[in-house]
């Protein structure tokens, strides 16, 4: 049974993880937590264990030992399908780029998580209207959302659609992995502002990972991944 720990949105303790295979890449996290509703900026270069850390928090990968509690549920104790279900219900994810299924409309992309997340589906009364409300709040033309194909959008528009998809149905945690690095400097700030206000409105927790420290001052807290996680490469 998943055990409830406390009110932290994320809580890692004595975590150790090794990627299967010959690379022997390993990661350990002695202690790390994010409070519910907090907006955390994680500073990390590529190769810092960033992807691995996010995979663990999202329940894609399971730790070899230790605790990964998200929204009070220890993911380490859940089996693969249950972790997938948990991620669908509780976590919204935004990637650096290539966020959208190119062959579906923006609207269909936004509604996609609801197909896998019954809890988020029930919390949204009218998915259609909610998608339009979110995209409206994020500054997207409804016409574009309804009629364009995802592949026709600019990168900035794609990232906003991705944000709407991460937010729909009110997941407790939003993970954004370098969401602005494909954007030019002028739109980066605006995107972060919009994202933050919507995360606030939803009462969710935001963890944003970036290598660009200039964006950090808008966040509640800034941590460097190298301070949290210790990575190593076992001799093959």
């Amino acid at each position: 049974m998943p055990t409830r720990t406390d009110r932290d949105a994320i809580r890692l303790r004595d975590l150790s993880f090794t990627w299967p295979g010959r690379t022997g890449f390993s990661l350990t996290v002695p202690e790390f937590s994010v409070a519910a509703g907090e907006k955390l900026f994680l500073l990390g270069e590529s190769g810092s264990g960033k992807s691995t850390l996010l995979s663990l928090i999202c329940g894609i990968a399971a730790p070899r030992a230790g605790q990964v509690a998200v929204d009070g549920v220890d993911l380490a104790r859940l089996r693969g399908p249950a972790r997938d279900r948990f991620r669908a219900n509780r976590i919204g994810v935004i990637f650096q780029m290539f966020n959208l299924l190119p062959y579906a409309s923006p609207l269909e992309n936004i509604l996609l998580p609801l197909a896998f997340a019954p809890e988020r589906r029930t919390s949204v009364g009218d998915p259609h209207a909610e998608a339009l409300r979110l995209t409206g709040a994020l500054g997207l033309d409804p016409d574009l959302v309804l009629r364009a194909r995802a592949s026709e959008l600019s990168i900035g528009q794609q990232q906003r659609v991705a944000a709407a998809r991460a937010l729909i149905g009110g997941p407790r945690l939003v993970i954004a992995d370098e969401p602005t690095s494909a954007l030019d400097a002028a739109t980066q700030g605006a995107f972060i502002e919009l994202l933050m206000s919507q995360v606030d409105a939803a009462g969710a927790t935001l963890v944003l990972v970036s290598h660009d420290a200039r964006l950090a001052d808008r966040f509640d807290r800034v941590r460097d991944i190298s301070e949290i996680a210790v990575t190593g490469r076992a001799a093959a």
């Binding site: 999202c58 894609i60 693969g80 399908p81 991620r87 299924l101 997340a117």
Partner: peptide, 16 residues
Amino acid sequence: RREMAILRAVGARPWT
């Protein structure tokens, strides 16, 4: 691969 990563991120199982 990106299509699969997106689907996994929104909660699809490998089985899906």
